[in-house]
Structure formats: C-alpha cells, structure tokens
Nucleic acid binder design. Structure first.
Lengths: 207, 207
DNA sequence: ATGTCTCTCTACCATTTGGTAGAGAAGCGC
DNA sequence: GCGCTTCTCTACCAAATGGTAGAGAGACAT
C-alpha cells in the first residue's frame, strides 16, 4: 500500500487528506469538517488557510497536476536512456499513478464532475508533453516503425485513459470475473495491448 | 444527442431523471428535490414511490444493469451472424453505452463511489456473459487464431473499461489535445487496438 | 513591556437537505 | 352514498454543512 509520509506543515497535511478523501468519496461526499479532523485541526483553521471548500478543491487539483507536470519531464527523459524506450515510458507513467491510486481516482472524478475545467487544466499543464509524444508517434510512422493506420491522437487518449482507470480502480474493477486479475496483470496486459498496436512488426512477444 | 422519450409513468420518469442527474453530477451532488422537479412531481411524491434517496439509487442502478443484462444476449447473438464477428460484437457493446452516455457515466461513478457493491452487482448480472467471452478467447488461443501471450481476463477488463470510459467521457476527455479526436475516432481506434492485440496475424489492417 | 502578525480555537448562524405528518383528491367495489 | 386504496400535495422538522465572529495564544521586532 503506497502511503505518503505525513507532512508536518498544516497546509500540506490538509491538502493530502483532502486528496485522499475527495478521491475516495468525491467532492460532494466529504464535509470539510472531516478533512480538517483528519489533518488534526478544526474546520475554521481549514477555511482560514484555504478560504472555502471550493478553493480547497482547486488547490488540491493544482497540487496534483503541478506534481505531475514537474515529474513528467524527468520520467520521460529517463525513458529515453533505457534499452526498451517504450517499456520505460509506459512504466514511468504508470508508476506515477500507481504510487498513489488516489491521484488517478481524483482525476477520474474531476473529469466526470467538471469536464470543461479539467480539459482546460490539462491543456495548460500537459499539452506540450502530449504533443511531444504524438510527434514521436508521427515520426515513427514516417519511418515505418509504427503502424500507419494508427490514429496518434486517439491512440494516446485511449492508452492514457486506460492507464488512469487501471491505476485508480485496478484491483476493484476486475472483480466482475471469477478469477480477477490483479493490478500487475492488468497493467502488464495493457502494456502488451499498447505495444502490439503501436509497432509495425515485432517478433512474437516479450513483455 | 441520443435522448430517450419521456415515459408517462411517474416511477419511470423519476428513474430516468435520476439516471441522468446522478450521471451528470453524482449521487451526493444532486438533491432529490431536483430529481422530483425534473420529473414533474414534488419531493414527498418521490419518496412515496422510492422510500428514500438511497433506495432510489439502488433502483436506478438495478434498472440500468437489468436493461444491460436483458439486451446483452440479443446483442451477442446478433454478433455471431455477421461476416465480421469481432466488429459486430464490439459495435453492439459500444452501441449500448453510446445510445445514452449517462449509462456509462453512472457506471463509472458507482464504481468509484461503491466499488464493492458494484463488483457484487456486476458478478450477479453479467458474470455468465463475461465468462462466455473469455472462454471464446481461450478456444481461439488453442486454435491458434488468437495470440497465445494474451491474458484473457486482463484483456477483457481493459477493453471493457476503455469502452465505458470512451462512451461516457469520449468527447470530453480528449480535449487535452490541440486537435482532439471525436468519439467516433476514439471508438474506431479502440476497436483497432482491441483487434490488433487479439488476433494472431491479420493481413495489414481493416477497420 | 508593547504592539503586531500569524495561527488556532469555541460559539454561533443561515442554508440546504432528507424525511415525516397529515390532509385532500381520484378511482373503485359494494 | 360509503369505505377502502392509491397517489399527490403543503407544511413542518431535525440534522448536516459551509462559513463567520471574535477571542486567545505564541512568536517576534521595537
């Protein structure tokens, strides 16, 4: 169970508890009183620091996207040095969300609750990186390494979506089945799905 | 915009409005007063018919899963008669959710809000069908038509998840990009992703 | 010591919300 | 007509919730 250490700073503690509670039960499902209690303070202290529940929501989201934005470059750069660039990139991205499933769950919830604002935030923080990936795919297509019939934008959205859902809901969503695959199996298959669709011809299959 | 016709029956009207409002803003985000108003009655009338907000939630979910369960057999059977069984099955399943995106969104929300109860309901209503699909994949693997390295359970969960997310959030979630693909493009690419991963060797690519 | 700034608390308030009580209307068998 | 059931309403209530007021404690510079 990947749990972050408890920060000493009050604001950080509130942000962290809010992230986990909002992710678990949704913005409307969690009274700020409960967030404050989890952070070891009272409600007025919370609103003193954040002004209102709505502003707390913004700050939680901003912190999450900010961390993503700050870690993405390092992740993607590290992904260029390994022997299997596809795998490195995939695992780095998946690792970010699996490090704390609450991140993925909060993103899912916010995309459902406020799709427009979320789209704007995504564009603001992440557009350069998504375009970088898409350009990379396009180049691969010109060079013949990547399937020509692949739709780069749709492919990227699909794989990213699948990753977020799996990271956020992985161990739960699969319990439809008699022998439900665990998160690791799901991520491994997702990686194979993504890889098989991506590259033009790959001798049998690895991981 | 796929909109269902307004039922004359009060209970059905309430159920339909509840489905759409819960899907749009979540169970905790919608007062039953608003649902009642949308259905053209007052709050006490709603609770007269459904007992409580929680029971209304159950009935909405039950109606959704029930309809799915009732339509699935016909869909899957129709899928066995076409020339391209994979495409028929995929499109039939996608069509069910795209007919009203609120269905997919409600499922997503409920999986986030109450994963355990949802897993139980899924098992109850849908397990036979999922197992049928998985057995079909296993047989295909034995016959060599389907990739041996494919994890049937994980594959099924991944594709189903992706379909639900795309149907529920398709036109929104992709707005990260400068040139966002519409839902049709996303579903088409998802179908190619699923097909490419599934079959062992398929001359170039179709749809 | 004194004033100021930061932070936290207790006590309070207004609104929203789910649910209930009880009355009234409409249909129906008799 | 009369009683019974079904359905809907207005009026009301109690609890939960977001937010405010104002006091007090501590740090710190002067």
């Amino acid at each position: 169970m990947p749990e972050s250490p408890v920060p000493t700073d009050v604001r950080s503690r509130i942000l962290q508890e809010a992230l986990h509670l909002f992710a678990a039960r949704g913005y409307d499902g969690v009274p700020i009183e409960e967030i404050a209690r989890a952070a070891g303070v009272t409600r007025p202290t919370l609103v003193y620091h954040f002004g209102s529940k709505a502003e707390l929501r913004e700050k939680v989201l901003e912190a999450l996207l900010g961390r993503w934005r700050d870690e993405l470059p390092a992740l993607l750069q590290a992904a260029t040095t390994g022997s299997d660039r596809f795998r490195s990139t995939f695992d780095a991205l998946a690792g970010f969300f699996c490090a704390d499933p609450a991140r993925a769950r909060l993103l899912l919830r916010e995309m459902l609750d406020r799709p427009d604002e979320m789209a704007a935030l995504f564009r603001l923080h992440l557009q350069p990186w998504t375009e970088l990936v898409i350009d990379y795919v396009r180049r691969g297509q010109e060079e013949g390494r990547i399937r020509a019939a692949l739709d780069p934008e749709a492919y990227a959205v699909q794989i990213l979506n699948a990753m977020i859902v799996t990271a956020g809901n992985g161990h739960r969503t699969s319990e439809i089945l008699r022998d439900p695959p665990d998160e690791a199996r799901q991520l491994a298959e997702l990686r194979r799905i993504a890889r098989t669709r991506l590259f033009n011809d790959r001798p049998p299959e690895g991981g």
